[in-house]
């Protein structure tokens, strides 16, 4: 059951969010928190496991860059730290990946507190690097997405193809999710809690319940517009790619055959973290494995980002998923 709380930001949405997460940290008695952090000397935000809430000072979950799908680290992390209470902060695609991983049966999430934020899109790595290098541009770059949260982001054509076609950049699939899309974030962020986590952590002590008012309508409108935008982008990009990409499982096999054996896509994929597609004796991937892979794909696009030839795997998979779901499509595995 979902409950909604309001987080007043007083003109400083990031600072308010940090403070809120620190409060959650203390109350949930977390041992560790897994989140993207800025490291000295690195241009990017890298996934880091921290053990003191002080490090939260310089974190920004809305930074428009994604180096890895954080959820990929969770199975090992939970294994190695049995008994520890771990919090994770996820983008929507990471949240979806984690849910699918757990449904595939290999990750236990009972000791994991999941938090999720609305995603305002991320740039390709080289693009981000170039933008961040410009004098004085970095601060603006990091805040840009959040500044346009109210409209659902700005000029989305600049983002990674995977972000442009992402089926839902709206937070969910977590114990606590923070909504910013369609909201005046300089005043409010909306906090959604699931499964009674708000009662466990006594949210009523430090925040106030959200009483629906004009915000809801504005937010719902923006959400549906954003989702429509994503659909349009998907159609546009898949039209552009047209016949250059495989449209059946068979041609997908040929596609993998042609692209060599590097498997870098799989090394960066959270779903493959649970089960890497295996090759049968014929030298092709087991069709069931491929179907399991693409039906569980969360669309994070880390495969495309890391692929040496930037193959548009997320769009290919989305396209195939559509066909699998269509009547008369391939039978789903399992």
């Amino acid at each position: 059951m979902m409950k909604q709380w309001i987080l007043e930001t007083n003109g400083e949405p990031l600072a308010a969010l940090r403070k809120f997460i620190m409060e959650v940290w203390t109350r949930a008695k977390l041992d560790y928190l897994l989140l993207p952090l800025k490291e000295e000397g690195y241009p990017y935000w890298m996934p880091r496991l921290i053990n003191q809430s002080g490090r939260l000072e310089d974190f920004n979950p809305f930074a428009p860059v994604m180096t890895e799908n954080i959820s990929r680290h969770i199975p090992l992390l939970v294994d190695q730290n049995s008994g520890a209470k771990i919090g994770v902060l996820l983008r929507p695609c990471e949240g979806r990946a984690l849910k699918n991983m757990s449904e595939m049966g290999k990750v236990k999430l009972d000791k994991v507190l999941t938090m999720s934020v609305d995603c305002l899109g991320t740039f390709p790595l080289d693009e981000y690097e170039w933008r961040a290098k410009r004098k004085g541009a970095r601060k603006n770059l990091e805040k840009e997405g959040l500044r346009f949260a109210r409209q659902g982001g700005i000029a989305a054509y600049r983002y990674r193809a995977a972000c442009q076609v992402c089926e839902s950049p709206i937070a969910g699939q977590a114990d606590i999710s923070f909504s910013v899309i369609g909201l005046p974030v300089r005043q409010y962020i909306l906090v959604n809690t699931f499964n009674g986590i708000d009662e466990k952590l006594d949210f009523a002590d430090f925040t106030s319940p959200y009483i629906p008012f004009a915000l809801t309508e504005q937010r719902e409108k923006t959400d549906s517009r954003v989702i429509q935008r994503q659909k349009n982008s998907y159609e546009r990009i898949s039209n552009i790619l047209g016949e250059t990409i495989p449209h059946t499982i068979d041609t997908l096999q040929e596609f993998f055959d042609q692209c060599g054996e590097c498997q870098i896509c799989m090394q960066n994929c959270p779903i493959c973290e649970i089960h890497v597609p295996q090759k049968t004796r014929g030298g092709e991937y087991d069709p069931e494995d491929i179907i399991q892979w693409l039906t569980n794909c969360a669309g994070c696009g880390m495969c495309e980002q890391n692929c040496p030839s930037h193959k548009p795997i997320p769009v290919i998979f989305a396209n195939l998923r559509e066909q699998l779901a269509a009547p008369g499509g391939y039978a789903l595995a399992g």
Binding site: E127, A156, Q164, R225, S233, R236, I240
Partner: peptide, 21 residues
């Protein structure tokens, strides 16, 4: 189309990216 929907001719996107970069 450009700011809210990301819907535009392909070459327009490339031009705008060049312009920014």
């Amino acid at each position: 189309q450009v700011l809210m929907e990301g819907r535009m001719p392909k070459s327009a996107g490339e031009t705008l990216r060049n312009l920014e970069r």
